[in-house]
Design a protein around this nucleic acid. Structure first.
Lengths: 330, 330
DNA sequence: ACCTCCTAGGAAAGCGGTTTCCAAGTCTGC
DNA sequence: GCAGACTTGGAAACCGCTTTCCTAGGAGGT
């Protein structure tokens, strides 16, 4: 590899001058030398060694994003939002996927700390296990002690800047909207009990029904993905309306009903949560709670990069979107 | 930040010993000292500075993946495959998205070169512009000259290891299958003419029809995404069967037809390409050409990491999957 | 006992940059 | 024409870690 020293030698200048010309500096360099250096760099095909720059400058230009699963469009949208924001700041992005293993998340924080990334974004639901959360907090604290910045999209459980979707309220509004259509017997495809996002959405829904004086819904737990929705739908009893705690599960549920000849929304109404863009052409169109995922990702990055000393928590409201997957009861 | 020197001092050993204990080495360290070092590191919350390690070792443990658009499930699947493979090798991943701008791709190669990443994966279609391709090749050559490894998922236009989906053959087989159902009047929602993947799929389809002695299809160009498919579908004439060069476009086309009251497959048959998993619950189920995207991503990483000196090109066959979005003509 | 060979530990030289600190030269203003 | 203030270029320290090279001590062989 060609180094800055090679360039300096070829241009007949000192290392310092070459560095100032090529890699930015407050200092001026005379036009003649500048030209010589630039030509030398070009001839030699010089590329600065960023590891060396990072070491010397004591600051890196990369950020880390940790998501649960990139192939889940929910995370893809959040990550994309954050990555666009990062790109406008001239930052590079390291992406880690945990495949929903909280231990992996902790490990990634450690690794990203070792990389001395400028900021790390933890994207995705927290889990309800205090031991795991505690260890993650410790790891984050260690990172922050070294000057690292962190933010989270999910729940405010880590003591860092957080973009928190209003899962409870969104689910509650959805419940009221569905109740407003005349439904009274509900089921919730609730996802895993330990996933806070799933639990919050479920709880918000259940509470709203209670406030409305409606019977408690049947709550069916299972995986948080398409197949989880598919499986859970098969266990739903005589509900007229089924709430899957995310869109991907809802699509699984719709598939299950379709296979069994249950018509949606005629026989049963189905609603999801998130308003995943890739699914907007689904038939029947999914009633859901829209979350501005890209904005949330971008906002999380802003927060992480920002100076705010006390961790800020931003609630993001969801918007109920009624579409054809639900019907009015007559 | 806590440095290795801090740890060494606290443990009362030399830097060398601390390094050997904490960051791996061929050399043995006595149990007593080892324990002291580990305890000191733990007490101080030491995390190795990877920038420094990279510099000292002259080799990094990160790879770069450049994709067009992470929110497109096609790229998400490919990237996920590659990332899983990377994880098993203990490699970290930097992801760059070009948003379909070839200049961005070139810029990323330069940046990843500067990062001295172990390998870079260029995921996604090449463009038919020789000037752009030439500049990208130059940048890759510069990277490889410094010992960098590269691979591509797409077309063999870069002189690097390549995983090449058999777009022409896949499209041709699809054409024969559709013709076998009795269709004779086709339209192709062909995507952008300069995108090689789109062009290949279109060409393979057109050629196969020609070989079958069928009339040439109507070819409609447009963007390579959902909205492109939507728009293009609106311009299709009296074809009984429409081939969208990727699934996402096909879904857009289906949406357009649905809105216009055109029934699929009764009034028109629609086929796509890729077999995107997220779309497998679409109604009507999409006829398509299945590509093993995750495997392709993983394979590309293997190739990039492998030693093979002459660049290897691996064709990946697609498999025609007939589903309900097409009908047999009677 | 004595010599050789191996081993564990430490000193120090890089890795490729950035940046401080100097020195020399160039402009000002009077 | 000269002191003083700016510029510009270079030497060298330093960023945090790895690794080579050296040394001293211990094990093993005879």
């Amino acid at each position: 590899m060609v180094t800055l020293e090679d360039v300096a030698r070829q241009a007949g200048v000192s290392l310092a001058t070459a560095s100032r010309v090529l890699n930015g500096s407050t200092r001026q360099v005379g036009a003649a030398l500048r030209a010589r250096v630039e030509q030398a760099a070009d001839e030699l095909g010089y590329r600065a060694n960023i590891a060396a720059q990072t070491l010397a400058r004591g600051a890196s230009n990369v950020i880390g994003i940790v998501v649960h699963d990139l192939t889940d469009p929910y995370f893809a949208a959040l990550a994309d939002g954050a990555m666009r924001a990062a790109a406008t700041e001239g930052l590079l992005v390291m992406v880690g996927t945990t495949h929903r293993d909280p231990e992996q998340e902790i490990a990634y924080v450690a690794t990203l700390n070792a990389q001395r990334v400028r900021a790390v974004l933890l994207v995705g639901s927290r889990v309800a296990d205090p031991a795991v959360t505690g260890r993650l907090r410790d790891e984050l604290a260690r990172y922050q002690a070294g000057g690292g910045r962190a933010a989270c999209v999910g729940q405010d459980l880590l003591g860092v800047d957080t973009v928190a979707p209003a899962n409870r309220q969104g689910a509650a509004e959805l419940a009221r909207a569905l109740a407003g259509l005349g439904h009274t017997r509900f089921a919730v495809l609730a996802g895993p009990p330990h996933l806070v996002t799933a639990a919050d959405r479920c709880a918000g829904f259940v509470e709203a029904l209670e406030e409305l004086g409606l019977p408690a819904p049947q709550v069916i737990h299972g995986p948080f993905d398409r197949d989880g929705g598919y499986a859970a739908a098969s266990q739903a009893g005589d509900a007229t309306c089924v709430f899957a705690v995310n869109d991907v599960m809802a699509v699984g549920a719709l598939a299950a009903y379709r296979e069994r000849g249950v018509r949606v929304p005629d026989d049963v109404s189905v609603a999801g949560f998130d308003d995943i863009v890739t699914l907007r052409d689904h038939v029947p169109a999914l009633t859901t709670v829209r979350l501005p995922l890209k904005d949330m990702g971008a906002r999380a990055l802003e927060l992480a990069l920002g100076e705010g000393d006390p961790a800020v928590v931003e609630q993001v409201a969801g918007e109920v979107v009624l579409r054809e997957s639900v019907r009015r009861m007559t």
